[in-house]
Amino acid sequence: MPRHLTLVPAPADPLALLPQLRAALDGTAPLAVLPAGPPPALEAARWVLRPEVPLEDGADLVVVTSGSTGGGRGVLLPAAAVRASGEATLRRLGGAGAWLLALPVSAIAGLQVLCRSILGGTDPAVLASGEPLAAAVARMPAGRRYTSMVPTQLRRYLDAEPAALRAFDAILVGGAATDAALLARVRKEHVAVVTTYGMTETAGGCVYDGEPLDGVRVRVADGGIELAGPVLATGYRLDPEGTATAFPDGWFRTRDAGSLDDAGRLTVHGRLDDVVVTGGVNVAPQAVEAVLRQHPDVADAVVFGRPDEEWGQRVVAAVVPAPGAEPDLAALRPWVTARLGGPAAPRELHRIAAVPTLHTGKPDRQGVAAAILDGRS
């Protein structure tokens, strides 16, 4: 008998989703959570999910990706994959504990906070919009405490409430690269951070601090990271060609660049398709962003490439000024050159009020680039 998806709008109270999520984890009621946002975003998600069309075999959760490198897709996740991920995470962290939800439940990272709570038999707490982190922590029971954040959140709470961060036994940080300077600050404050690497197609983070979770296999082919194991999705909703390309022979091709050391520890170098080729030199935008954030005049940064007749592409930086600062190209170019070399130094600079994010919490690099290239910023 055909199975159909139940589409649920992201609820005002995410805990209201728990009964439906339990049913999805039991394999009895396939579920997709629509992202919060304006009507066009909701319609785009509905078009991807197509609830009127029978669901592919083996799928129990369908999660719409952020579309950070293109249009969003519906990722088909079996309950077994979500359970395998959640159970492996709890083992890696040292056992069940109370979780604080600080991310949207339409994204895999937020959904996994609720799933890990279900699997661990604990009641999650929710960080309300605008609420101090310390107030949310105060509602959590005694014992082991966990949460998941994106780097932007971690940076903000480190500036405003470092003591609240120290209340957690582990803070999983993922969704975007966490630069070395931020990690150094976090560890100096004795905050228990675990860097995670993974994506919706792997039911969330599957490599913690460079080491794969139980059952997860990692390899690097032609510079690109590939993943396998019990956490993998079965493919993409109503996209057999995309599924065949991304999931050949039981492996998922991530389109991320990386390397493995002799001990099998993974280092992620950024997106294969994000590289800016300027004057014949490959420049990784994430590396430039990390260096720019270390400058005292810069609070945040997004870097991308722009066509250039002389260089092929030029490195463009959009920066959020630190309070009271006015970063300029003359100061930032030598700063980057000294750390990454001349080709990585931005040749164009834009000041922006904030880095916009996608519904997953990831930086919207494409949105920033489009606004600047179209002359809207």
Score class of each variant (00 low, 15 high):
R185G: 04
M199K: 09
T245Y: 14
D209Y: 06
G215V: 01
D262F: 05
R219L: 04
A244Y: 09
V218P: 05
E241A: 15
V186Y: 10
V186M: 07
D239E: 13
D249A: 15
H190P: 00
R187W: 14
F247V: 01
D179G: 13
A176K: 01
M199V: 09
T234F: 06
A263K: 12
G204A: 01
L182D: 02
T267G: 03
A221V: 15
D214I: 08
V186R: 05
L183A: 11
R217M: 10
R185A: 13
T245A: 15
V218M: 05
E189D: 11
T195D: 09
V218T: 14
E211D: 10
A176T: 10
L182Y: 09
A246N: 08
D209H: 02
C206T: 11
E241G: 10
E226Y: 00
G175E: 06
L266C: 08
T254G: 02
Y236R: 04
G270L: 06
A233W: 11
G258Y: 03
V193T: 13
E211R: 15
R219T: 11
D239Q: 10
G175M: 01
T234H: 13
T195Q: 15
A181F: 10
L182N: 05
E226H: 09
V218H: 02
D262S: 14
E226Q: 10
G198H: 01
Y208D: 01
T196S: 15
R185W: 03
D249H: 14
T245Q: 14
V193A: 14
G223R: 08
T195F: 04
G223F: 09
Y236L: 12
L266E: 00
L260K: 11
H269A: 12
G198C: 07
A177I: 02
Y197C: 09
R271I: 12
G235P: 10
L227F: 06
G224A: 15
D222L: 12
D239M: 09
E201C: 06
P248C: 13
L260I: 06
C206E: 03
W251E: 02
A257H: 13
V268K: 11
L238T: 12
K188H: 14
D261Q: 11
W251D: 03
G215N: 04
A180I: 01
A228Y: 03
S259E: 15
G198E: 03
R237A: 04
A203P: 02
E226F: 00
A221F: 09
H190W: 13
G235N: 09
D249R: 13
T234M: 07
D222Q: 15
L183R: 12
A184N: 03
D274F: 12
R185V: 03
D256K: 03
G258A: 00
G175A: 02
G204H: 08
V216Q: 01
D179L: 04
I225L: 00
D261E: 08
A257C: 13
C206D: 01
R217F: 02
C206K: 02
G175L: 08
S259W: 13
R185Y: 06
V220N: 12
E211A: 14
V216F: 00
S259G: 13
P240G: 11
A228N: 00
L182W: 02
G198R: 01
G242T: 11
V218R: 03
E189K: 07
L272K: 12
T200R: 09
Y236F: 15
G235K: 04
I225M: 05
